[in-house]
């Protein structure tokens, strides 16, 4: 099939950027979208042009490295699919595909399509963990976790940290990422002791870098793991509770 790529090229964080158009004739529909970029980069090299920089690694939809805004959608048109798992057969022969980097002040552009997502690490560092130093754990089966709670925690924990939620959000909010990380830990019994300090810490750290959630729901649609915005509601509720709860005298009641 024949495609035309319009790709955002930007030499560095503060350089001006522009779209460049590249004809991609005769590509196979069995290719993945990133393999299309591999082919493009070989072409560019042959023409003595610098290859397009883009983050990618596992190419099986789990590491969360790949990040492209494809025709106005984070990760492209296929639902529940990261860029690396998008295959060309899902695109129309002869079409012009526009590819941009994630755009958010919290994700500064490094070069071309590669952005810096380390703000996500800052959010996790602020409280996205359970304090359980190695060696102190009791037998795993002493902690009973209702299957439903465990399944819900796993739904949230499936987040791959790709940043599509921020990219897709009209407000550039990171609520879905933060909520997923938060809910994963706070739905489990092990996560209860730090539940309310965690939510305040994570929300405040998140708000240093990103916009606010106004419930567009765009993040849920863009998420390659289809994580539900129900977790955002949980985050919001717990944040409000945390501010007004008498945690000092709540004892064991989380």
């Amino acid at each position: 099939m024949d495609l035309t790529l319009r790709v955002w090229r930007q030499a560095g964080p503060d350089s001006p950027g522009r779209f460049e158009t590249y004809a991609m004739p005769g590509v196979s529909e069995d290719m993945s979208f990133l393999e299309l970029f591999d082919v493009l980069n070989e072409q560019l090299l042959a023409d003595n042009e610098e290859p397009v920089a883009f983050d990618h690694d596992c190419r099986e939809g789990i590491c969360g490295s790949c990040a492209m805004m494809i025709d106005g959608r984070a990760h492209g048109p296929e639902k529940g699919t990261a860029t690396c798992q998008l295959h060309l057969r899902k695109l129309k022969n002869g079409s012009v595909i526009t590819v941009e980097p994630w755009r958010s002040a919290g994700f500064p552009i490094i070069k071309d399509l590669a952005v810096d997502r380390s703000a996500f690490d800052r959010i996790v560092e602020s409280g996205g963990f359970i304090t359980a130093p190695t060696g102190a754990a009791r037998d795993a089966n002493e902690i009973l976790v209702p299957k439903e709670a465990s399944d819900a925690a796993m739904d949230a924990a499936a987040c791959i940290g790709c940043g599509a939620c921020v990219a897709a959000c009209p407000n550039s909010a990171a609520q879905l990422f933060t909520a997923a990380k938060y809910s994963h830990l706070s739905l489990l019994p092990q996560g209860q002791p730090e539940r309310y300090t965690r939510v305040v810490a994570m929300v405040e750290e998140m708000e240093k870098y990103f916009g606010s959630c106004t419930n567009h729901g765009e993040c849920e649609q863009a998420c390659p793991k289809e994580i539900s915005i129900d977790f955002i509601a949980m985050l919001n509720r717990d944040f409000v509770k945390a501010q007004f709860k008498n945690t000092r005298l709540s004892g064991q009641r989380a």
């Binding site: 950027g17 779209f19 941009e100 755009r103 958010s104 002040a105 550039s172 916009g211 606010s212 106004t214």
Partner: peptide, 17 residues
């Protein structure tokens, strides 16, 4: 929110939700 995305997308968005 405006500060959170100082440079807008340069191509049209295709909203899903």
């Amino acid at each position: 929110n405006q500060r959170a995305r100082p440079s807008k997308y340069q191509s049209p968005r295709d909203y899903a939700a």
